[in-house]
Nucleic acid binder design. Structure first.
Lengths: 236, 236
DNA sequence: TGTATTCACATTGTATACAAATTGGTCAAC
DNA sequence: GTTGACCAATTTGTATACAATGTGAATACA
């Protein structure tokens, strides 16, 4: 799925992914070719190929004669997200517990160390990216390319959503972060033990925690029955 | 997910997909750029972009400085396939029953008509492609982009596998084809009725039928306990 | 005879130039 | 004042030429 391990091209590919995941590039924003060419020191031909790749991976949306945009997140995607996430996450973690190799388990532990460190520093971006990395490793452990396709797309949006709600984590809410981290630790144990039922269960608990945070963010207390019109939609 | 509705480029994109799904292009076979350029009347730049797209969609695998190959199917992928298929198919059909529009239901009926027709003619390719089309429509009905990513990849391989076992359908085995078709009909009813439980159930039954055919093909009767070595694997 | 090195060829990767399409703005007409 | 057409400027799409990498055959050497 990674494009190639070329040089400047890979840098562009990876950095665009990072920028999209961290909301540095906002959903729906235009990606102009010449700007990106200068930024990454590529000519348009290879840069366009990077954009095609990112499109296939779900990071970017292409429109004929109208260039590339960062894939946007509507409330439709949020609804889809809520439906797909528990299904895929639990399946992935079950398979991870079945199939993880020792090397991968070490990778996962390292990722968790990095996440814990990012938790301590207040760096929102680092939290989101290290968390993203943790879950992508569980995906690789599962080693199922079909499910991986869904996981990849879920994580794009999960990480982007996380960038907004990790930001508001203060005081009492840090308990949630600690809980999330503790769940990661338990996942590692379950995977090491090959305890697939426990791993799947943890995936669902972890998702439930995340879901509650998202719901809190989407629907803050006190605004549960908002008056007035729903946000206006573009008609297709 | 479709690239654009350009002209020659779209033709190349769609035709390559078709050729890959029908095994006209064999798994693992090389896709040389100049050959494809002549075939589709494109220069290398847009053709390469098509290959990048197909790579993102899972039809094609790219290697740095070594070009593109048709994604191959090992028995690893077959194992992954058996794990992921029931999960995704049932989820997709459940959502399809929830969300299908009337227009989509008409499309699905048309696809089923085409499938039935292909069943009568002995045309293996037509069977595989119309069946593929039927299931992709259910995916669009479900309208969940996350799960769609997995479904797309499952259907690539399911259709390719189908190309081999549809071929051996004769005499008594036609019963299986009729049953598959009848299941399609029942799916349409369940979707029209919004009966999501029934739709999900049918997805599993349909999968079970398909799985049995695949198992028969992979492990023909009389070879259930083969002697000697398992097929040799390429390490890594 | 077997192995290693070299060189020519073929194929992929990149840059640039050119063609086509879209966008935004101006001006005229209603 | 609003609508519409037209034109310039920007941006995307395509072709071609060139650079770099990989492949394989022939040859030299052990």
């Amino acid at each position: 799925m990674p494009p190639q391990r070329g040089t400047a091209k890979t840098v562009a590919y990876e950095d665009l992914k990072r920028a999209i995941l961290t909301l540095e590039r906002k959903p729906g924003s235009a990606l102009e070719e010449t700007e990106l060419c200068e930024l990454y020191g590529l000519s348009r031909t290879p840069l366009r190929e990077v954009l095609q790749q990112l499109s296939g991976d779900g990071y970017v949306t292409l429109q004929l004669n109208r260039g590339a945009r960062v894939s946007d997140m509507t409330h439709f995607t949020l609804r889809d997200f809520f439906l797909a996430a528990p299904l895929i996450y639990s399946a992935i973690l079950r398979l991870a517990a079945q199939n993880a190799t020792l090397v991968q388990i070490d990778e996962l532990k390292a990722a968790q160390d990095a996440f814990r460190e990012a938790m301590d520093t207040g760096d929102v971006t680092a939290r989101a990216l290290t968390n993203d990395r943790f879950h992508r490793i569980t995906g690789r452990m599962a080693g199922n390319s079909y499910l991986m396709a869904s996981l990849d797309r879920l994580l794009i949006d999960h990480t982007r959503i996380g960038m907004t709600f990790f930001r508001q984590t203060r005081g009492a809410k840090d308990e949630r972060l600690k809980l999330a981290s503790a769940q990661h630790d338990e996942m590692i144990v379950a995977i090491e033990d090959g305890d697939e039922d426990r791993a799947a269960e943890l995936a669902l608990e972890h998702w439930a925690l995340s879901r509650d945070q998202i719901e809190l963010f989407v629907m803050p207390p006190g605004l549960e029955a908002p008056l007035g019109q729903p946000p206006k939609l573009k008609s297709a």
